[in-house]
Nucleic acid binder design. Structure first.
Lengths: 224, 224
DNA sequence: CGCATAGTTCGTCCCTCATCGAAGCATTCT
DNA sequence: AGAATGCTTCGATGAGGGACGAACTATGCG
């Protein structure tokens, strides 16, 4: 009854699971397209579009049009801070569902995140690539190291093409709470993993299952 | 899809107007009963009770039973911080509905807040009482000053009785963004205002309308 | 100029959840 | 004990809003 800033309006925008997932995905700081966010949120494109309109209207998002792509991003640090604050409470208040999570062990190990690999394997891979200076990580940004070109060429991945999407991108992995590798390079690596049949995708799930020899091959190439 | 803390769950708890109002009311830091919160939120007691259960289950509130009264309060500073963060975004993002607010000018001037006076008049009154050292304000806490007893006795209010409820309490006034006086003293003052017919309550509204002579009398006693 | 891709709008279905009145507990006061 | 509060639970009602498929618009590519 007391009139103040309409906090319920803002909170209810975040209070929908699909929208919450989108906002979470945008917490990485990189702009994402509607399709990417639809996948991230696990809803169809029209549904995602509708949610994005609402978030835009609510002032939580900004939109940057680049050619035929439209990149959505968080409206500012204040919004990001709010998400963090809510996340903090959610963590503090509901440890029940976070920890055990044996709901799908395979998902924690490796899964598809849009077009690249996520999960423990993916986080370990990025760590190792950075350790070997093949990739350079600088806070949130990831760049190619001097040896990247030759290293990836050796396994048939060309990192010197200049596509519209960035080659490297950090993507926050919520199951491990660390970053994994996204961008065209992340996508190319996932392609290779599936092409070489090192792993297969679980039907109707994002889980990625490595075969025993496939796992060895993957570790030899990326974790050695 | 990515599993993390369930931020949507928390946000949707805050995303209902009734619950948001309750949380806002509890931002004062004082425990409030279900009935008080029902009034604050503008819903019936059963509805309020249902909302309170959900907030409790969600871990956002704590409950302190004292005799037959049950005082609800925010679960902790983290929760308060979250509300503040959301409020900040709501303010930044929607100045449209905050400023002009001529929807009910009378409400801004003076209105009932549960059992005491709120609005510009109430805020001015508290300021003046503190200025004259009749009341002592210490951050959020308000105490009686040395001359309080005689000052209020002169207008027929006994502040020396020791009821269960605190005599003085600060209550955040959202229209002015400052505190006004609640507690039994606040209630007694409102009683006097209505009893002396300095003002009348608008029917079916929380607005309090002072008559011209009533306003003079009020100012003479409390704002001089 | 078509074709393809990215995105929005429309229409419809359906489910959740907020709301309230009435009745049921529980606690305290007389 | 009986009465009176303060609060919760139950049951029924209704509306808001999230979901998707299909059709439409817009931008870029050959």
């Amino acid at each position: 009854m007391r009139e103040g800033p309409d906090i319920a309006r803002i909170a209810s925008l975040v209070g929908d699971p699909a929208r919450a997932n989108m906002l979470n995905a945008l917490m990485g700081g990189t702009g994402l397209t509607a399709s990417e966010l639809a996948l991230e949120a696990g809803v169809s494109l029209p549904t995602a579009s509708s949610h994005l309109s609402k978030l835009m209207e609510g002032g939580l998002l900004t939109l940057a049009s680049q050619g035929r792509h439209r990149y959505y991003g968080l409206a500012g640090p204040q919004v990001a801070g709010m998400i963090e604050a809510i996340t903090g409470v959610a963590e503090a208040v509901g440890p029940k569902r976070v920890r055990p999570g044996p709901r799908d062990g395979a998902m924690r190990v490796a899964r598809v995140c849009y077009d690249h690999l996520a999960g423990e394997q993916a986080v370990a891979m990025l760590d190792r690539l950075v350790e070997k200076d093949i990739l350079l990580r600088d806070d949130r940004e990831i760049r190619l190291g001097p040896s990247a070109s030759s290293h990836f060429a050796a396994i048939g991945i060309d990192v010197d093409a200049k596509p519209r999407r960035p080659v490297c991108r950090a993507c926050l992995d919520w199951s491990v709470r660390r970053s994994h590798l996204a961008g065209t390079l992340g996508a190319a690596i996932l392609d290779k993993i599936l092409l070489e049949k090192w792993a297969r995708r679980e039907k109707d799930s994002r889980a990625v299952i490595f075969s025993p020899p496939g796992k060895q091959a993957f570790e030899k190439v990326f974790l050695s």
